[in-house]
């Protein structure tokens, strides 16, 4: 497997008034194509910051993050946007769907910024909605869909650009356990069948247990980064 994202000694500090707060204190890791990673750790351990650096939503204040061969610390804003558009797909805890826009057009949104024509955008979006099992609900507004369905729309949107890496921040955080379980099934299926690398930030041990590779963080540092034999992982009912 080749490297999709390479993080080298990345640090990220925020300035809050007069004081500097370190969210990441020198983190290194490689996300390979086809990886299935869970990032776990307590609140404030730097999980979400790491995910933002992996996806080029943010840049490190020290060290480097190289996404698909592009160093995010040296490229311009427009180029970084292009990288986000082509290489990664994001899934957020809060779904972040456009409320007045149909599921279909929500999914098609990333293609707008790739200059794809409207008819083609909709054709590809419909294909993705089919893949996540929502083909019949393409015309619905997000408000007319359940939480699990909304998150599946968000996943379809993240995948419509055929990214190498899917980055998910607490994707099941707003879902009940049944919906959460279905969502993880879907993510794993996409990972297995299409080779999309998955990096999931989660508090949920069951979610973490389903990943092949587990990264534990604390105080802005990676404590452990371990590979598991997927066949040995428990696959029973996700949560009580």
């Amino acid at each position: 497997m080749t490297a999709a994202i390479e993080v080298r000694q990345a640090a990220r500090t925020y300035r809050v008034g007069q004081t500097e707060v370190a969210a990441l204190r020198g983190v290194s890791l490689t996300v390979r194509r086809g990886d299935h990673i869970a990032v776990v750790g307590p609140s404030g351990s730097g999980k979400s910051t790491l995910l933002q650096l992996l996806g080029g939503l943010d840049r490190p204040t020290a060290g480097s993050v190289v996404i698909d061969g592009h160093d995010t610390t040296t490229v311009g804003e427009a180029e970084l946007a292009r990288i986000r558009n082509r290489v990664v797909g994001f899934v957020f805890q809060g779904f972040h769907l456009q409320p007045r826009t149909s599921a279909l057009d929500n999914v098609a949104l990333p293609l707008v910024y790739r200059g794809v024509r409207r008819a083609e955008r909709r054709r590809r979006a419909a294909e993705l909605l089919d893949r996540v099992g929502l083909g019949a609900r393409a015309r619905h507004l997000p408000g007319q869909l359940s939480g699990g369905e909304q998150q599946r729309v968000a996943i379809a949107r993240a995948l419509v650009t055929e990214p190498a890496v899917l980055l998910a921040d607490e994707p099941t955080g707003n879902l009940d356990s049944a919906s959460g379980g279905h969502l993880l099934d879907l993510l794993e299926q996409l990972n297995a069948e299409h080779g999309v690398a998955l990096a999931v930030v989660t508090h949920d041990h069951d979610v973490a247990a389903r990943a092949r590779r587990r990264i534990v963080m604390r105080d802005g540092r990676i404590i452990t980064d371990t590979e598991h034999d997927i066949t040995a992982a428990p696959t029973g009912p996700a949560r009580a």
Binding site: A81, R86, H96, Y113
Partner: peptide, 16 residues
Amino acid sequence: TREIGLRKAVGARPAD
């Protein structure tokens, strides 16, 4: 602001 953040996350450039 959230909408802008999302658009940027999926690839909108500042010019867009």
